[in-house]
């Protein structure tokens, strides 16, 4: 077993997902199949091989730090489930 049902539940919590028991069982099986397939990468010696995180050799893009027009507040709030007209509203945090 690459990944146990308990680990699947732990990963789901990290990802803020609630899985019903059937889905958790199904995912445990499927993730085991997929992770077992991934094992083939261990056949390769990658010592001394640098990682690629980006396909092009671009350097960080810089620009002058100048204030520019941005989204109007009302447009920014327009897609939210709840606002007080100025801010996003969320359920209690603590």
């Amino acid at each position: 077993m690459k990944i146990s049902r308990q680990e699947v539940d732990r990963v789901a919590r990290l990802a803020r997902l609630k899985l019903d028991p059937e889905m958790a069982e199904l995912l445990t099986g499927q993730m085991n199949d997929i992770l077992t397939y991934m094992d083939k990468l261990t056949q390769l010696d990658t010592s001394g091989v640098p990682p690629t995180n980006h396909a092009l050799e671009l350097t960080g893009a810089m620009r002058p730090d100048q204030a520019r027009p941005s989204l109007e507040r009302q447009q920014g709030l327009a897609n939210a489930a709840d606002t007080d007209g100025q801010y996003f509203k969320v359920p209690r945090v603590i």
């Binding site: 997902l17 993730m31 091989v49």
Partner: peptide, 29 residues
């Protein structure tokens, strides 16, 4: 959900080097 789960697992403490780190090196190859 499946991909978020796989990705979260591959980046999680203890598995990062074995999965994401390894895959990023093989990406170079």
């Amino acid at each position: 959900v499946r991909r978020i789960m796989l990705g979260t697992y591959a980046l999680s403490a203890g598995y990062y080097d074995a999965y994401y780190g390894k895959a990023s090196a093989v990406r170079t190859l």
